[in-house]
Every structure is written in structure tokens, then in C-alpha cells.
Design a protein around this nucleic acid. Structure first.
Length: 461
RNA sequence: GGCCCCUUCGUCUAGUGGUUAGGAUCCCAGGUUUUCAUCCUGGUUACAGGAGUUCGAGUCUCCUAGGGGUCACCA
């Protein structure tokens, strides 16, 4: 039997990293077995749908490179299909109409809670045979088993037993006739022939309900894997501030999709001591049975480290393309390769990398105050002028010859390297840190190097 | 509150009865670098607590504590 998995978001918001991770786990499971990965939109609550959210989810999938098979399934377009199954359950006496008004249900629940009981429907219409009350559109409830236990054989958590009386005769169709979540999930997972369902463990308590549907309809349930949540760095529920943001936000913050995916796959899953996984390796090695039981915390440092790793490994041509979105266009720059080798290792994100590059490609307009003060003292200006003159006279062209100029200068003047290094650095880049001077000067060329030195002297001396 | 799940360095994790409890990140120190970053080397830090089973327990059982989830005509 071929493996079929799915990701089934509800279009009520953007895709965040928790969702992306379960999508990734599902996708990897399918790809590992050469199976099928489906995308299904859980939009049965017509009043809560947002086509923008829908588009955002697909955009995010696209960015990270998770491809799905077949057409996207929209549950809102399958109501007729669900209706057939509801009618069948009604005909077979496995479901029934409940005429209890919503308000009455509410007061019942309040009373139960006041008594310290678990709020639940009391089953008053379960065996109702009388004349239905006038003017009420009934909901349809399923007859859940009233005794015994419901067993979930979870691929992550193991065997979980839940007492049947924990499960109410829950509603499978609203009074307006539309079906509800737990019902359609079970129907679609069965009809779409899901073999493995990987989802957040906030769905764990939906599972017995869905199992009731499978049972009533004589359908075979898939294997379930309930994955623990991702918390923030403080171990609390993820909020917008710390990672529950739109996945696309990571793109604008300069993260590479391979870094994000690598980061997420290691949250709740591991393969020995391995930290770096290419997509191919993930597919080859991922097995949902290795998913951890416990919740994990989001850790920005690790994501940043991974991102730096993938930036360093990225071919220049691809980096040049990606950098365009961050106001850096090196595509026609004659020294693009040199610029990238000088800066690649200095940015944890594309945003930082772009800043590093701009330091070189754009002459500084301001100078770091502390750096300038420290560097431009004593004979610094004199040394810079001397150096500029030497450059003009000897016209070095390579990293080595530029380096020789500096070397000779410190020898001739019998000074330390820092005496030229610091003021030169501030002159060329505006700050005390950054790429190597030889590298920078080769990129700038003699003319621009001298121009920046003169500009700095004018501004700081 | 009922029910269910979870608990190894700050964080991500390895570990399936016998290990000096390993790796990664972070942090610190040293080296490389004229600077910074990278890179290399080294270091600090963990089995939530308590009983039990066993020659021996992070690993098995029970209890406690803490954290989380869930109890909708939301998904």
C-alpha cells in the first residue's frame, strides 16, 4: 500500500512554523516512501474563511519548496458528498436529530460546570421518537459509544486509552446543514486514502471522536502521529513575537528556506548526532516513528547558526539572485565574486550580508564615532596621506600587492600594523570591523580607495 | 475542575539496565586574523523530586511536583 499523507490547514490565518513543521514531517514521510502528499483546506466553517490566508499558505509552501500532489481539496466544495454520509448514518440509526436550542445547551453546560462536572451534552434526543418541537432547525449528532474505551494507537505517544463516556454525542452537522470539522476530517482522510496522519497533539482529543466516525461508517482509520507543540524560548506558548509569525516573514528577514527546514526538522526529531540535513538527507532518513514525545522550544540562535551555515555554502550566482530582494544587485558588478568571498562569512542573514556588501559598494557617509576617535589620532592623517600617495605611485592591482604596500609602509615608518590598519579601515568602511583591508582595496581599486581616504580625512581630521 | 500527554546541560537533542551521560547551539578562554566575522582547540552547565524492582536505573513500576493540551452548532 502506497503511503499517503496530507497537510490540512484551516484558512483562518497565515502559516506559522508549527504548521510548517507538521507539514514538513508529513511531506517527508510521503516522499520517503515515494508516496503522495496532499493539501486539503479545512474550510467547512463558511463564516471564518479567508482566501487571503489560503493564498498565503500556498505561497509559503512554494517558498520553502514543499510540493503537493494532485489538486488542492477544498472541503467547502464537498458538502454534497458529506451529506450522503450523514444521511446514511441517519438512515442506519447511528446518528440523530437533536432539537435542543443552543441557549438551553449553554445553560446546561454552565450548570454542570457550577457543579464541578465536565460540561457535556446529556443525550436527551438520542432515543427521541416523539414529535419534534416546532420552529427549530435541528443539529445532527452521532451516537457515540456509551461504555468501554476508545484506543488510539499513536505512532508517537504509544497506546492511549480514553473512556468512551468522555466522548459526547457530538455534532456532525450544524443546524444550517453544514458538516463539522471532526466529521469531515474522518470522511476525507478515509476517502483520500490517508495512511499516515501527522498533526499537532492539540488534535489528540479529536482522535477518539474521529475514530467514532470511522467505526460508524466501517472505514479504516489511518495511523496517527501526534506531534508535541513548539514553545517559545521561555517554554511558553508561541506568540507572534517569538516565532508564531507568518513563515513568509522569515523570507523578508533574510532566512534561507533550507535553513528554516533544517531547523524545524530538528525540533522533535533527530538522527543521532547529525545537525545538518539537506532535503535529500531528510527524505532518506526521516521516519515518523522517531518523532519525540515532548514539546520543544524555539531557539533563534540555532536558526541563525543554521542560516549562516547555508549562506556560506550557497553558490555565488544564487546568492546574487537572492540579494536583489535586499537592495543589493551584484549581477553586473565586475568584482561580484570578490565581494561575496569577502562578506559571505559575516552575515547570519541575507539582511546582514546585504549590509556588509553595501559597506563596500557604497562609500561611507557616516563614520562610527568611537572608531573614528580611536583611529584618527596622532599621526594617523599623515600616515593615511603617505599611504594614499604610495598607492597612487605604485598602482597595486592584486590583494598581494596592496598588502605589500601596507607592509612596506609600516616597515619604512617603523610603526605597528594597527597604525595604518585602523584609520584605513575607518576610512574605507566607516567602522572598525568588517572585511579584510586587502580584499576591500582590491575590490575598490586604487582610485576609489584614495577617494575614500581623502573623504575620511576631510570629514574626521 | 475531569480526562489525556509531557519532563536529560539555558535551548535542540543522543541514550532502549552496566557510558568518565555524547553531540549541537549559546556562553567563556586560547589559537588564527592588522580589526570583526569565519575557522580550529579547550572549558563551564543536565537525567524534576521521592519511593520501589534489580547485583546494578536517565533507562522498568508507582507516587508527588511542574508544564502543556482538551472538554464548541471553531478548526
Amino acid at each position: 500500500m502506497s503511503t499517503v499523507t496530507r497537510f490540512a490547514p484551516s484558512p483562518t490565518g497565515y502559516l506559522h512554523i508549527g504548521g510548517l513543521r507538521t507539514a514538513l514531517f508529513s511531506w517527508l514521510t510521503a516522499r520517503h516512501h515515494d508516496g503522495t502528499f496532499r493539501l486539503r483546506i479545512e474550510d467547512t466553517d463558511l463564516s471564518r474563511n479567508s482566501s487571503e490566508a489560503m493564498a498565503a499558505i500556498i505561497r509559503a509552501f512554494d517558498w520553502v519548496g514543499l510540493n503537493y500532489d494532485g489538486e488542492v481539496v477544498y472541503q467547502s466544495q464537498r458538502f454534497d458528498l458529506y451529506r450522503e454520509y450523514i444521511d446514511r448514518l441517519l438512515d442506519e440509526g447511528k446518528a440523530y436529530r437533536c432539537y435542543m436550542p443552543r441557549e438551553e445547551l449553554d445553560t446546561l453546560r454552565e450548570a454542570q460546570m457550577a457543579r464541578g462536572e465536565r460540561p457535556h451534552y446529556d443525550g436527551r434526543y438520542r432515543d427521541f421518537t416523539g414529535t419534534p418541537p416546532e420552529g427549530i432547525d435541528p443539529v445532527i449528532r452521532i451516537k457515540a459509544p456509551q461504555e468501554g474505551t476508545i484506543v488510539i494507537d499513536d505512532g508517537v505517544k504509544g497506546r492511549i486509552e480514553i473512556a468512551a463516556d468522555e466522548v459526547d454525542d457530538f455534532i456532525i452537522a450544524r443546524s444550517d446543514g453544514t458538516p463539522t470539522y471532526n466529521f469531515v476530517v474522518a470522511i476525507d482522510d478515509a476517502l483520500m486514502e490517508m495512511t499516515d496522519v501527522i498533526r499537532g497533539d492539540d488534535h489528540l482529543y479529536n482522535t477518539p471522536k474521529q475514530l467514532v466516525i470511522y467505526e460508524a461508517l466501517g472505514l479504516t482509520p489511518p495511523r496517527f502521529y501526534h506531534v508535541a507543540m513548539i514553545n517559545n524560548e521561555q517554554g511558553k506558548k508561541l506568540s507572534k513575537r517569538d516565532g508564531a509569525t507568518d513563515v513568509m516573514e522569515y523570507k523578508t528577514q533574510g532566512f534561507l528556506p533550507e535553513a528554516l527546514l533544517n531547523f524545524l526538522v530538528r525540533l522533535g526529531w533527530s538522527h543521532g548526532d547529525q545537525e545538518i540535513f539537506s532535503l535529500e538527507e531528510m527524505i532518506a532518513l526521516f521516519d515518523p516513528k522517531d518523532i519525540n514525545k515532548s514539546a520543544s522550544s524555539y531557539n533563534l540562535d540555532k536558526l541563525l547558526w543554521l542560516n549562516a551555515h547555508y549562506i556560506k555554502a550557497k553558490p555565488d550566482a544564487e546568492l546574487i539572485e537572492l540579494l536583489k530582494a535586499f537592495d543589493v544587485d551584484l549581477s553586473t558588478h565586475p568584482k561580484a565574486t570578490e565581494i561575496l568571498t569577502a562578506t559571505k562569512e559575516r552575515g547570519k542573514t541575507l539582511v546582514e550580508l546585504a549590509e556588509q556588501i553595501r559597506l563596500i559598494t557604497e562609500a561611507p557617509t557616516t563614520y562610527d564615532e568611537k572608531a573614528a576617535k580611536k583611529a584618527f589620532k596622532g599621526e594617523a592623517v599623515d600616515i593615511l596621506k603617505d599611504f594614499a600617495f604610495r598607492l597612487y605611485k605604485n598602482q597595486p592591482k592584486t590583494q598581494e600587492t596592496f598588502h605589500d604596500e601596507m607592509q612596506r609602509l609600516v616597515q619604512d615608518r617603523e610603526i605597528g600594523f594597527g597604525k595604518i590598519g585602523m584609520p584605513l579601515r575607518v576610512s574605507l568602511l566607516g567602522s572598525m570591523t568588517g572585511a579584510g583591508m586587502d580584499e576591500v582595496m582590491v575590490i575598490l581599486g586604487v582610485e576609489e580607495t584614495i577617494a575614500r581616504i581623502e573623504k575620511a580625512i576631510a570629514a574626521l581630521a
